[in-house]
Simulated scan of single mutants.
Amino acid sequence: IFAMEVVMMEYTITGFMPVILASTIGALVARVVYGGERPFQLSGVELESLFDLPWIVLSALLIGLLAGLFVRVARSGNVMKRLPFPARLVLVGLLVGAVAWWYPQVQGMGYDSLGAILNDAEPLDVLLALAIGKLLLTAITVACGIPVSIIGPILVAGGAVGALCGLLGGWLLPEIAAGPELYAMLGMAAMMGAVLQAPLAALMALLELTHNPGLILPGMLAVVVAGLTSRQLCGCDGFFISVTRHGLHPLQQPLMQALSRVSVPAVMERALVRTPRRVTRAEAKALLDAKPEWVIIERSRDDKPTLALKAAALARWMLEHDENDNIDKDGRLDLLEIPGQRLELAPIHLQATLSEAFDRLNTKHVDALYVEHGHRPGKKRISGIITRDAIERYYRFSDT
């Protein structure tokens, strides 16, 4: 669900099956090698009273604001990247070292600290350091262009913020408020959902890390409130959505969404023949006997582009010229000398989607792609070609 909601940004049957298969195999291998121990051994933690719900909403509102702050700071890279990379490394090292001098818990991924938070074993000052310090240190590190994981740190920071809210709620309403462990779990999910804008992935993480289905109801409330706060009040979209056009990530654009659901074989033209550049008239006639749409002209060297000639152009030339026209001394005609539509081709694999084909057409600055499959050494296996016109006809098609 994380892969589909955050990476692929859509749910499709064709995408769901391989992702689920990969997840299942990964989980099985991990369980065989490392065992099936749960990440956090918790029991008996549940929502004891509906009076907790208003405080959960307020806590999620705070977490959403902190998530928006994290995304804003992490994306302030234009300011940080004015410094040389070694200077940024030194700056981050000094900041982390300064905070870690008093609070070493801010270092590393922090899952040990998260376990302590969920078991109510961290003092108040450590919770503050994890909630604010670890969140900002991670954001500054990302802004400096230093590769770092964010999933672990935001889970730890969210758990710390939730625990703080739970402690405050216990002080205000000691008779009815739930324990800080409940709020720590909800804060963990709410921070993940708000930063990534992935509510389902956050709820699944909450369920899988705690194995407590009783947390789904308050978890849904916390995740939704935090996500809406980050998006609507702070103006932050998902953390991994960085390249936008007209305010949308490429996979959020309706056209690219439609093209990403269809594979190349659905619209490629399969009626083609392959031939060297120079052929005899008899060979040319044999090519046309197969009734192709395109003639793929293979070149003598790999550095020369593969070309596609409209078969109709070759047939027209054969009708209009006698046997001696444009024939060289070896009795062959040059297909590059025949007037007609010729397209320069770039390769694309058979499993590609139309959105990938569209991007490749633009990046390679060509008007068509040849679809290859298999890995036979020394010779490409070409299944068909896909033109820019074919893609445009697909998304302009209407059954009305």
Rank of each mutant, 00 (worst) to 15 (best):
A202W: 11
D289C: 10
H249L: 07
L307E: 15
S242R: 07
F240H: 03
E208C: 08
P305M: 06
P218D: 00
C234A: 14
L207M: 15
R299H: 11
S230D: 07
T306E: 12
K304T: 15
L272E: 03
R245E: 06
A266K: 04
C234F: 02
L288H: 10
S300Y: 09
P218Y: 00
G235Q: 06
V267N: 03
Q197C: 05
V223A: 05
E269S: 15
G247E: 14
L200I: 10
T210C: 13
V279R: 04
A290W: 03
A282S: 14
R245V: 06
E269W: 04
L307F: 04
H249D: 14
Q257S: 09
L248N: 15
V262P: 06
V295G: 12
A290M: 09
L209D: 04
M204F: 15
A198Y: 01
E298H: 14
E269G: 09
V224L: 09
V273A: 02
M268W: 00
I241Y: 05
S300N: 14
S242A: 04
G219P: 02
L248P: 07
L215C: 10
T210N: 08
L233M: 09
R281Q: 10
L196R: 01
L287D: 03
E283S: 10
V262S: 01
L288N: 13
R299L: 14
G238Y: 01
H246V: 05
A198K: 04
F240G: 11
R274H: 04
V243P: 01
R261V: 10
A201R: 02
A198I: 02
E283M: 05
E208R: 04
M204H: 05
T210P: 02
A201M: 06
V273S: 03
D302M: 14
L206W: 00
V273F: 00
A194E: 07
T210V: 14
L259H: 04
R231P: 00
R301E: 08
A266I: 07
L307W: 13
L288Y: 05
S230Q: 09
Q197K: 12
T306M: 14
L196G: 00
G227A: 12
V225Y: 00
A284Q: 12
P218L: 00
D302T: 12
S300E: 15
Q253C: 07
V295D: 01
